[in-house]
Design a protein around this nucleic acid. Sequence first.
DNA 1: CGCCGCATTGACGTTCGTCAAGTCTAGTGG
DNA 2: CCACTAGACTTGACGAACGTCAATGCGGCG
Lengths: 242, 242
Amino acid sequence: MDTQSDGRKVKVACSSCNLRDACLPVGISPSELLQISKMVSSQIRMMRGDKLFQNGEKFKALYSIRSGVFKTSFTSPDGREQVTGFQLAGEIMGLDGIVHDHHTCDATALEDSEVCVINYEHLEQLSREIIGFQRHIHKILSREILSDHGVMLLLGSMRAEARVATFLINLVQRLHARGFSSSELVLRMTREDIGSYLGMKIETVSRTFSKLIEEGVIEVKQRHVRILNKEALKRLAELHDK
Amino acid sequence: MDTQSDGRKVKVACSSCNLRDACLPVGISPSELLQISKMVSSQIRMMRGDKLFQNGEKFKALYSIRSGVFKTSFTSPDGREQVTGFQLAGEIMGLDGIVHDHHTCDATALEDSEVCVINYEHLEQLSREIIGFQRHIHKILSREILSDHGVMLLLGSMRAEARVATFLINLVQRLHARGFSSSELVLRMTREDIGSYLGMKIETVSRTFSKLIEEGVIEVKQRHVRILNKEALKRLAELHDK
DNA sequence: CGCCGCATTGACGTTCGTCAAGTCTAGTGG
DNA sequence: CCACTAGACTTGACGAACGTCAATGCGGCG
């Protein structure tokens, strides 16, 4: 079980994971941690561009990112793609698959990544047994809803500049919480992905970046972004009004 | 317990509720139904305009609509309102409050309504005991996420006409599932609410309705809407492209 | 070196927001 | 019973923001 033939699957205990404070095992005793560890049936290594799951696939497990970055996206019947989010280490993917026992979106690795596979039936069982774990699962689901509401606010009422500013602030905050810089970040996604997520065309994304550069708020080299004036950026993010 | 002094609270068993196939008790045995009934501590009657809960309030319970219509809305720090959804009978509100133990949006009755109060701690306990109930809760949460993704797609990529068409189709479908007409509906919300939800200004909402009337797709008298050509409406809803 | 995908920039057009005037309905009080 | 008012809604004229189309730049890779 510890090693797999194809080399894509490995086994690492939750107890030795440096994300154990951010992922599933929050406020859990060592013995319970072991149980959770068993629930995580395997880890998968993925290359940039690989899809972890796709719309229509049978839902069997949730996925926690151990390292790397993903995007989740909807492809509507007529072929349009809507990016619904970008996920970082410690975040859970696949929650939308629970309702209909089938995944309803695609999850694509934006860089080489590792994910933990969390068997759903096993998770259900554990959340009956470990007190507090169930609530944690509810919170994860609820957090996703909250975050989606934030995006709805963004899409519904903000102008392009505010959307991009909000996007950058949110991303750099989440990266900072994972030990990265609070003022620099590397965008693992294309401008197209950003545009889809923020509800704007790629040209508008590009122009908005240029504007922020002109205003001296950020510095951009390719996909590397440095925030020069976080206060100004935050002010822009609050300047709604479409 | 059955009657309350102020007359606002009443007690009705889940087993006698005509929504028992749509609400919490799905695929549940009679004895379990009784348990669930106990979890529903009370019912509240509300008048149009009353708020069921507000942003910042302590989260203690979920709420299931027994009759009536609600809107849920975000009020951002700078005072802007974003409507995040409209809820009909059998739908659950308050899910976004689980993460932080506090409600993060307001729920407002759009007509005189009744709601069932579902004590959250009690719900947690029951979902450990009744097999299948836990999964049902997960599905409710997951459904909310899915629905939010749909709104994100709408806000991110549709033009005004498609947004309104999608809105009307979605609403009439949900009403139809509750025994109402599949081609007529009464909008309990103002144009302003619709605009906030769909990310457009009230004037644009109004103009879009007018356009749909001109095209012979719908008929509108005040808040009463009759869908004359559902096929055409569906086609418009799929005509994304902002 | 030259290709390819990604990104930027410019010119132009469309859609939707803004501002302002006006209509309709329900509710109130004479 | 009718005039009066307030709030919700509609409509028109105009402008700003963003989408569209097209040309060009740029870095990575065979």
